[in-house]
Design a protein around this nucleic acid. Structure first.
Lengths: 206, 206
DNA sequence: AGGCTAGGGACACCCGGTGCCAGCGGCAAT
DNA sequence: ATTGCCGCTGGCACCGGGTGTCCCTAGCCT
């Protein structure tokens, strides 16, 4: 047999290495837990060396996030493109919904990723670093819309709490399978935008 | 000279070891950055061995957080004690304000801690694990008040977004020194409770 | 053929974290 | 006072994530 090149079927077409690592990592992490898998094992399953793993991903956690930077960039583009045609919160909600509009074929993979990220403590911790980029993008948009600086309380607050809403929507989507991602996101943002009106169903005194 | 015991002044009274480690870690991390300091250095400055450090703190990051578990427990107690005498959001806000009501003598230390936690990526990541406990406590309170389960969307959403508000208030407090912690917290919670009304100062159409 | 470059493997090293064992001091019972 | 237990500590060896360095190989260009 020997190495077959350019067949496009037998071995990986040179770029598939990254994808192979992702698959190996995702599968192993899901089956045995993030901490229960060493990078040597991921590398072995992916058919590469440990050193090569770190040429494709900077950390052990990074294999779980696809090219998240592209998502952040797309979110930023969506917000800038929206401009001021909608109220601020509605624009952010629409952008979050749009950027998370996966085809149904991709949903299982997304589920697997989010399940890991929200379940494994080490990945949950790592997520904070990733989300900081999202928050910066949203805060800049809010600052632009309100004529404030991105470091002030209001832009930062809108960014962090809308991102909390999005994350919680993902949680709910994972927990309750009949909850579509779209619906979970809209519900969470609606609660936010109304100041959690559903808490006041039976306001006591006041 | 030799070892002086029970003087209460010269060397540490046996319990001060933990405090000495905290001080050493905080000072070193502040001066040279979290990643730029090894635990051996912290241990050396604290006058103990590396192995003993890990008997007092489970991880490198833990030395930065005092006994955070006590804060969480106090927050839980405050919420349970409040019962349903206030609207849900107001109760959570009051509890956050109360649990963060430091004496002015303690503010510099708090500043140092929060500055590290919010600035150093590794500590920011670690914070997510700590905050998960806070979120659980708040979600349980909301569930109790609304007759829902702590895992449902609304309790989780209220917990994560109020915690986002509290964290953002800390950020603002650090950034703008004239902003008192109390005022920052109340401002953030007020924005949340009103659905970010100040975003609508000039609603375009609709 | 010679030379360039990019991708990958082998190795050594640093550092955070853990398990294990040994020492040492206090303290109680005898 | 001797014995034995116990809590704190240090020393050591080990694992695993992450990094820097060197070398090898495959290709490709001229």
């Amino acid at each position: 047999m020997g190495p077959v090149t350019e067949t496009g079927l037998d071995e990986s077409p040179r770029e598939g290495t990254r994808a192979r690592i992702e698959r190996a990592a995702l599968d192993l992490f899901t089956r045995r837990g993030f901490e229960g898998v060493t990078i040597d094992e991921v590398a072995e399953v992916a058919g590469i060396s440990r050193r090569t793993y770190f040429r494709y991903f900077a950390t052990k956690a990074d294999a779980v996030w696809g090219d998240f930077a592209a998502h952040v960039a797309r979110l930023a583009w969506l917000l800038r493109d929206t401009g001021d045609r909608q109220p601020v919160l509605a624009a952010i909600c629409a952008a979050y919904v749009e950027v998370n509009d996966y085809s149904s074929a991709d949903l299982p993979l997304l589920r697997q990723r989010m399940q890991l990220i929200l379940t494994e403590p080490a990945l949950l911790a790592h997520s904070q670093v990733r989300y900081a980029d999202v928050d910066r993008v949203v805060a800049e948009y809010v600052a632009m819309r309100t004529g404030t600086e991105p470091g002030e309380l209001l832009p930062r607050l809108v960014a962090t709490s809308t991102r909390a809403a999005a994350t919680t929507a993902f949680e709910a989507w994972l927990t309750y399978p009949e909850f579509s991602l779209d619906k979970a996101l809209r519900t969470a943002f609606d609660e936010l935008a109304t100041g959690f009106r559903s808490l006041d169903v039976q306001a006591p005194s006041a």
